[in-house]
Write a protein that binds this DNA or RNA. Sequence first.
DNA 1: GTCATTCGAATCCTATAGGATTTCCGCCAT
DNA 2: ATGGCGGAAATCCTATAGGATTCGAATGAC
Lengths: 226, 226
Amino acid sequence: MLEGQYLDSLGAVPGAPRPTEVHQHLRGLIMSGAIPPGARINIDDAARQLSVSPTPVREALAGLESEGLVVKVPLRGYRTTELLTRDELIELYELRMLLEPAAAASAARRRDDAALQAFDAELATLNGHPAALPAGALSAHDERLHGLVFDTAGNRLISRTYARTHCHLHIFRLSYAGSYGHGTLDEHVEIVRAIRDSDPERAAEAMREHLDLSLGRVLGTEAAAH
Amino acid sequence: MLEGQYLDSLGAVPGAPRPTEVHQHLRGLIMSGAIPPGARINIDDAARQLSVSPTPVREALAGLESEGLVVKVPLRGYRTTELLTRDELIELYELRMLLEPAAAASAARRRDDAALQAFDAELATLNGHPAALPAGALSAHDERLHGLVFDTAGNRLISRTYARTHCHLHIFRLSYAGSYGHGTLDEHVEIVRAIRDSDPERAAEAMREHLDLSLGRVLGTEAAAH
DNA sequence: GTCATTCGAATCCTATAGGATTTCCGCCAT
DNA sequence: ATGGCGGAAATCCTATAGGATTCGAATGAC
């Protein structure tokens, strides 16, 4: 339905590639929770609010559908993807458990000065604020840190593969705020420490433990909400 | 440029969901090699040959772009994705090595009568033909069998994740025919045998060995073509 | 002979209009 | 009062037309 508060900050350059912008814009709206899961998306309304014609919007939605962020019912319009069920959440963590420990180990093998500096910088962003962070800060930090692990691991195909599915977890966590406990940061520190020490086995183990605890936290909040 | 031999077998039912059909049609053309890697796709020509207007074609291409089958240069049109480089091929097999042994182990744990029957039926399709198979038969068999392993493993998220990247390997093998040796079938039999025996560890090991040998075969043909 | 420049054709991109389908609401019968 | 039915509004879907941009070839200069 598009609340109507999102500026139409495009349209200045007529020749600019608008479909890409519309795509990114809609993606941001979904990822930020502005368009809640399961909500219908009216093509004409969206086009009006973005000051474009329905055609680019339709094109962007087709792309988002292949990314799994929206679903299309042939003659009934588009809807955002429903929230992950408990089973789907467990499946997602099974996938993470396959990819991320291996990525952490690879990162420990391949890490260089630039990578370590990036890790330190990322950890420093939350170091001074032990608690009472703005909403979503921990979520964003978590996403960035895991992204750094994949980047350092050096397999771009795996990185993209993971990023494609990670967005669903992101949306899930937005809906059930508080899926992060105090342990999250400590576990991150432990992973980074193992990577800095070039200890692949310890990095993989730290990542496994982090994922295990993370799944417990997420399932806990889901059960509480239920 | 679309050779022009692909019939417009759609258009009978006006209300039918055509974008989906166009999407599947184009995907088939790319996956079958009818549109070679790196070729340009003219929207108007494609629309004419499919007897639809450019709009649904554009919509389908936007979806294919998110799947990684085509790339879009903003004001220069669409092109099919280039063939995998040697490094990308190795990255793909790294991903397979993470997902498929685990899937084989899971399949060995969860296999039931229906799954075993499906495996037998798949192996039987090539049993009578030891050699001199029609081109692409081995490739199709390989794809189906690995898909069966994932289906039996029971994690649909991982299945889709893999299917999304597998298509690139498929295209690669079409370009370098002969990436399958005599060993392929024997290795498949070994994997299925371990799954039938409910031996997860052996299934994973058989899959690892199969992937290792498969990578060697693929890299060999690539080196020979070079 | 080679390079830069200009002109033309082809192509992409967006907007608008019309047809087809679904959905929702009021109405009637039971 | 409840369930079935008919019509109108809303929405999706496709086609067509026009503007903007890019690519290729021909022309001219050095």
